[in-house]
């Protein structure tokens, strides 16, 4: 308990805690829309595709600035999504297989670039390999500030365009009929996902960042049948995961924040799938028992009536 108190008072720790929480919050919010649009794996593809983008951004600028990484990752994500679209349009390959091809080839290319950077004449390259699994503890004040601004703007955009995002996620055809620029809205959602992925990479890493987009959203779905609530719950779950991950990792030495954050999200998911009202496994089991009992009772009642009739 005392160590926990000391940690809470540590300003460095506060920064990391704040940024991980905000990161979880924003990925949770944007994740809801990608989950409902059946694009969960797109987050994973974008994350893996971001690696070569980040490496190229570093090779060109020679600095580890979040802004350039964002640009690089965004460009790479754009190329990846176009690649997936091109493959599905021009071949018999289905969307999931196309994502698999693009994801792995981009990641492979990213690893090659990463190795070149590490063995090349780039100064200040230390820490770039941390992008694979993330290193929250390495974040500095300016990173935290950028992450906070990005996360908050992401949430603001989702709030402002909630109506549009909702309709496009539920029924894009009808949205188009109303005159909504559906393609533009879908691109905006995709862009927000790229942003969430890129700010998440530094804390959680390329390999695991998709978990923060998928898991809180899936967990939140177990607790509500309203999109508004789902987005809020998902955001809270994401924030909780980030917070819990940071605290646990700071309690021991050599405990990585990113993976712990993902594990915290998974724990929340397990709780949700078990105890979610109505949709949870326990609630379903209870309901089945209740229905079975009421049918039994009805049946017994009828039989008693029949027996009564027979004796008369």
């Amino acid at each position: 308990m005392e160590t926990l108190w000391r940690l809470i008072q540590d300003p460095n720790m506060q920064w990391i805690f704040l940024s991980c929480t905000l990161l979880g919050l924003s990925s949770g919010v944007i994740g809801c829309f990608s989950y409902l649009r059946k694009q969960s794996l797109m987050g994973d593809t974008l994350a893996h595709a971001a690696l070569p983008g980040i490496c190229i951004a570093f090779m060109l600028t020679g600095t580890k600035s979040l802004l350039f990484f964002l640009l690089g990752a965004g460009a790479a994500g754009l190329v990846a999504t176009f690649g997936i679209g091109w493959i599905t349009r021009n071949s018999r390959i289905k969307h999931d297989a196309a994502m698999g091809i693009v994801l792995s080839s981009f990641f492979g290319f990213g690893i090659v670039l990463l190795t070149i950077i590490q063995h090349g004449e780039y100064g200040n390259q230390s820490g770039l390999d941390k992008f694979l699994f993330g290193q929250a503890a390495a974040m500095v004040g300016s990173d935290v500030l950028t992450m906070s601004i990005v996360s908050l703007s992401l949430i603001a955009v989702c709030t402002l365009f909630f109506k549009q995002f909702k309709l496009v996620s539920f029924d894009p055809g009808f949205a188009r009929g109303l005159g909504y620029p559906v393609a533009l809205i879908e691109q905006l959602l995709m862009f927000l996902m790229v942003v969430a992925v890129v700010v998440g990479i530094q804390a959680v890493g390329v390999v695991l960042v998709a978990a923060l987009i998928i898991t809180p959203a899936v967990s939140a779905r177990y607790w509500t049948d309203k999109l508004g609530f789902m987005v809020v719950i998902s955001g809270v779950f994401g924030a909780l995961s980030g917070g819990i991950g940071t605290i646990i990792s700071s309690l021991g030495s050599n405990l990585p924040t990113g993976p712990l954050t993902v594990l915290a999200a998974t724990a929340l998911f397990l709780i949700s799938i078990l105890f979610g009202p109505r949709r949870g496994l326990l609630a379903k089991r209870m309901l089945r028992l209740k229905v079975a009992r009421s049918i039994d009772e009805e049946q017994g009642h009828k039989e008693r009536q029949l027996e009564g009739g027979a004796t008369l």
Binding site: L36, K38, F170, D225, K226, L227
Partner: peptide, 10 residues
């Protein structure tokens, strides 16, 4: 059939 009826809405 054009939409997913499991969408969280009423």
């Amino acid at each position: 059939e054009s939409v997913d009826w499991d969408f969280p809405t009423n």
